[in-house]
């Protein structure tokens, strides 16, 4: 019995000595790193690039950092075909989330608009000699596949032959690009006090949760098709005039399909930035994708391809709106 009590006493002592709170070295030694971000725009001749440096804060809450981390004075060049474009830095005004105006730095050029399938390279030489490099291949053109339901494009009207959902497919020669389709109802408000052209986006679906309709949009996928349910179209049509008693002040033009095509690097960055983990799994160290040699960030490209469809006049009128084309 003596042994038992002796052991129990020893155990208690061990517990007492080891119960004290300990300091945890959550943070390792700070290392200076740089990020470069740029999305080459195949739809415009202005190209933007941002270069930032990393930072440290007291504790582990980075939101307390107030410092502007933009790095100016870097020598930033882009190569497109056989030409070198030099980007210059400037300050632009932005509206912050709290509504206040702020000025941020950015590198830009407005000298070139890359074409489908072309490569653009970038190199940024910082004043301290550090070099950041990357490249992107502007996505290749896609072909919309319009014979899915056996009707000609010019005759294609929505809802038309579709029963539950509208689906548009496309094909591409490249398997290294990704797509995000968006469906927009383009309409005019022609009230005396408000005569503007607007759009209402149609999500893939609406789900009802606790009495509210929550839209579900298509993310970036490798799939070659996008869709929306006709129920989602109905709800989007209603939302155009939500809260407005006079429906005749709305003129519906068309349904525009915009497919944003992104290169594989931007797609990978997009997916690694999103929280796609399930509700219960816990992963400690999320992967941080980058294609920047010598730093962090993303250098990718995008281009938008559009096509449009008409909405059936009778369908438009059923909501009390006027059709633009009749």
């Amino acid at each position: 019995m003596k042994i038992t009590f002796g052991l129990l006493a020893l155990l208690t002592l061990m517990v007492v000595f080891s119960s004290c709170e300990e300091d945890i070295l959550i943070k390792g030694e700070f290392r200076q790193k740089y990020t470069l971000n740029g999305i080459v725009n195949g739809d415009d001749s202005t190209q933007f690039v941002s270069i930032l440096q990393n930072y440290d804060v007291e504790g582990i809450d980075p939101s307390i950092n107030e410092e502007n981390m933009f790095i100016s004075g870097a020598y930033v060049r882009m190569w497109y075909k056989d030409t070198v474009y030099i980007l210059t830095d400037t300050l632009i005004s932005i509206t912050k989330q709290n509504g206040q105006l702020d000025e941020v730095g950015i590198y830009y050029t407005n000298d070139f608009k890359p074409a489908f399938g072309e490569r653009v390279e970038i190199e940024a030489l910082l004043e301290n000699g550090r070099r950041l490099k990357s490249y992107t291949d502007v996505p290749k053109k896609i072909d919309f596949v319009l014979d899915e339901v056996g009707v000609d494009e010019s005759a294609r009207e929505i809802p038309g032959p579709y029963e539950n959902k509208f689906e548009l497919a496309w094909s591409s020669v490249s398997n290294k690009q990704f797509y995000r389709p968006r469906f927009k109802i383009i309409y005019d408000r022609y009230f005396a006090y408000d005569d503007t052209r607007r759009y209402e986006e149609v999500p893939s679906e609406y789900i009802e949760s606790e009495g509210e309709y929550i839209p579900v949009y298509s993310g970036i996928t490798q799939g070659g098709a996008g869709y929306f349910s006709l129920e989602a179209l109905d709800i989007a049509m209603q939302k155009i005039s939500e809260g407005m008693p006079v429906k005749s002040g709305f003129r519906i033009m068309l349904l525009q399909v915009e497919v944003t095509i992104v290169d594989q690097f931007l797609a990978a960055y997009y997916s690694s930035s999103g929280n796609l983990q399930d509700e219960y799994s816990i992963s400690l160290d999320k992967s941080d994708y980058t294609n920047i040699e010598g730093g962090f960030g993303i250098f990718g490209s995008k281009i938008i391809q559009k096509t449009s469809f008409t909405l059936e006049p009778d369908y438009i009128k059923s909501f009390g709106y006027n059709p633009f084309y009749e």
Binding site: V40, Y55, Y270, S273
Partner: peptide
Amino acid sequence: TIGFYDKFSPIDIDNPGSVASAYFPYTM
């Protein structure tokens, strides 16, 4: 953790100018 950086949020990929402002703090 060895530091933090402002990570570009690619939510608005249709707007390449968002590289100027769309950032959130991220742990390195």
